[in-house]
Computed example of a mutant assay.
Amino acid sequence: MNCRIMFLAVFLAFFTLSEGMSLRGLGVEPRCRCSGTESRRIGKLIESIELFPPNPHCRDTEIIATLKNSKQEICLDITAPWVMKIIEKMMANKAP
């Protein structure tokens, strides 16, 4: 009986690890990228912004900014008014 439980535990651990690795290989994170967000105005410090729509692994829209000097990535608060303006500008630039 203990052997079966051990085999099942090893199998589940292997399956979980291999599934996570295969998702990363496809460029998909198996979880949300942001654990917290920044709402302070940091517009002048931003080099680039990426918008990640909701997906099967994260129900939230995530906006990640890369800072100019440090190249640090910071998650932005999507409800902050200044972030909403940036999103509007991004969408307007993508419109044909």
Rank of each mutant, 00 (worst) to 15 (best):
E73M: 10
I87H: 07
L51W: 01
P56W: 07
E73Y: 06
V28D: 04
R59A: 10
I78M: 07
R40L: 15
I64Q: 02
H57E: 12
P81H: 12
L67P: 06
E19H: 14
K94Y: 05
I63C: 06
I46A: 03
I78R: 04
G25A: 12
E62K: 06
S22L: 04
A92R: 15
W82D: 09
R4H: 15
K94D: 10
A80D: 06
I74Q: 01
F11L: 15
N69Y: 08
L51I: 15
I74A: 02
K85I: 03
L51T: 06
E62L: 10
C34F: 07
P53I: 06
T79D: 15
T37I: 05
V28H: 09
K68F: 05
L23F: 02
L17A: 12
H57G: 02
F11P: 07
L12R: 14
S35F: 09
S70N: 11
A80H: 04
C32M: 12
C32W: 03
T79P: 00
A9P: 02
L8W: 15
I49L: 05
G25K: 11
E47R: 11
P96A: 10
T37H: 06
P54W: 06
A80Q: 08
R24K: 10
E73W: 01
M90L: 07
A13W: 08
L51G: 01
E88Y: 09
E47K: 13
E88S: 14
D60F: 08
L76N: 05
C58K: 05
F14T: 11
G27M: 05
P81K: 09
K68Q: 13
F52C: 00
F7L: 15
